[in-house]
Design a protein around this nucleic acid. Structure first.
Lengths: 169, 169
DNA sequence: GTCTATAAAGCGATAGAC
DNA sequence: GTCTATCGCTTTATAGAC
């Protein structure tokens, strides 16, 4: 609900309908209310990316394989462009100020892990840093364009091109 | 207000405070209420980009000059990364469905005008189409990253790299 | 642990005085 | 054309029964 409606747009009524839980249950599980729900969702997303994307980027013996894994996991996570990025949605809105650390940390750690992997894969230091930024921006922007055009293929195409740029022939 | 708070987040209270107009005045000027306000803002944005970006891309005798003008106007419009894109914000949220035409049209006409200019500037047909998509996604994504990091320079850097990719040496 | 009932505030929108 | 007052509804959040 936060992903598709934004923080302000995701009302408790929508959340109760989507979860099948009444407000009483929600406040029992999340005493901090809506803010805690969002915080817990952000934490869960962070854990998923840490495990499925950042760690493989950092730890893969074969850097190229780690990068390839990132593209595959990213495509799966965003449902090939049918899903948008909750962290990106929060970043653009007023919610960024309430969840600064989570929003900032997500992109920062992704960028750092990717830049290091690109370096290990053979890109020059400066080029790797720039390329990592381009790839992250390319992914976020492609999600915007895909949803604007209501055409997930925009995302798939962009992801394929970014993967090609990351690969050293 | 729509840009910084999203469609749902931009309440009439925020809008009255920002404009200095009471609700009565707002509904006198915009009988269609909040939806009309958003529609009129989208129309205004569309006019601005049509005049300052799309038309120069299409009509410039020197295609390279038209593209350079686009990057300059884009940097100015987004305040070098201190502003985000209202159309992008709407695209990611539920507002897209209420303002489909405006959101879709904005990116589509930008992409088409840019692809044509890139082709006239010397890029091969297929490469120009791909590059146009990359540049639009790069801009939207850089706005996300810049706001997430609370660092406008992320946007300026990305824009400079995109401009370099658009230029044929 | 989940529910219903309810509170207090805020929402978009309208009416009518001036 | 702008204001205040108000409507009806929704919002987040709480209380208390079960």
């Amino acid at each position: 609900m936060f992903r598709t409606h934004g923080y302000e747009g995701a009302s408790l009524t929508l959340i109760t309908a989507a979860t099948g839980l009444g407000k009483g249950s929600l406040y029992h599980l999340f005493p901090g209310g809506k803010a805690q729900m969002a915080r817990d969702v952000l934490t869960e997303i962070d854990r998923w990316f840490e495990r499925e994307v950042f760690a493989p980027l950092r730890d893969s013996a074969d850097a190229q394989a780690g990068i390839a894994h990132m593209f595959k996991a990213t495509d799966a996570y965003f449902r090939s462009g049918r899903r948008v990025c909750l962290v990106g949605v929060f970043a653009l809105g007023a919610a960024r100020d309430e969840f600064t650390d989570a929003v900032q940390g997500y992109f920062e750690r992704w960028r750092e892990a990717l830049a290091a992997a690109l370096r290990r894969a053979g890109h020059a230091r400066g080029a790797a840093a720039e390329l990592a930024e381009d790839i992250l921006a390319g992914i976020q922007g492609a999600l915007v364009l895909a949803r604007a055009a209501n055409d997930p293929k925009v995302f798939s195409r962009a992801l394929a091109r970014l993967k090609r740029r990351a690969t050293i022939p």
